[in-house]
């Protein structure tokens, strides 16, 4: 059942990204280009999403179990540190270069966009680099010959 609700959530999320225009990098760039012909549409995306989200998380944080009876895995207040700010700045700069962030990139793959596939491949590589830097090389995962 949790697989079904996760699938449904992904589908609705993707439909929202298409309908809102977020899946079109040219439109995202139009939003990020304050000094050009600024297109404020994407502020409406955030506004609409947060409107629903405020109610949903208000309810979610008052529950000890999910509607399906599972545990809640919602974050509690974490630290505002250099990792958070530095990582977010790096992400924002990358977002500004291509106009793609993780969600729209995946949806655009479903639209058959080769360029989105290239972007997502690099993004996954970046995430793997993070895992390796954070948690080290997984033991026994790399062929030994490489280290000789």
């Amino acid at each position: 059942m949790t697989l079904l609700t996760a699938l449904l959530s992904g589908l609705i999320f993707g439909l929202g990204l298409i309908l809102s225009g977020m899946v079109n990098p040219a439109k995202v760039m139009g939003f990020l280009d304050l000094a050009g012909a600024w297109d404020p549409s994407l502020a409406f995306v955030m506004g609409g999403a947060i409107l629903v989200g405020l109610v949903a998380f208000f309810i979610a944080y008052r529950r000890t179990l999910s509607f399906l009876g599972g545990n809640m895995h919602l974050p509690n207040a974490g630290a505002i540190d250099r990792r958070l700010v530095g990582g977010s700045l790096l992400f924002g700069a990358g977002w500004g270069i291509a106009g793609l962030c993780p969600g729209p990139a995946l949806v655009a793959i479903g639209m058959g966009e080769t360029k989105a596939l290239v972007f997502a491949g690099a993004m996954l590589a970046g995430m793997v680099i993070f895992e390796l830097l954070e948690h080290g090389m997984p033991a026994g995962k790399l062929p030994r010959a490489q280290w000789r």
């Binding site: 549409s41 409107l51 989200g53 949903a56």
Partner: peptide
């Protein structure tokens, strides 16, 4: 864009409330 945003909100609500 607003309608798409509402859908994104509903998707986030679904995952939060049903999957935690």
């Amino acid at each position: 864009s607003l309608a798409g945003g509402l859908l994104i909100g509903i998707a986030a609500a679904t995952l939060a409330l049903f999957n935690g």
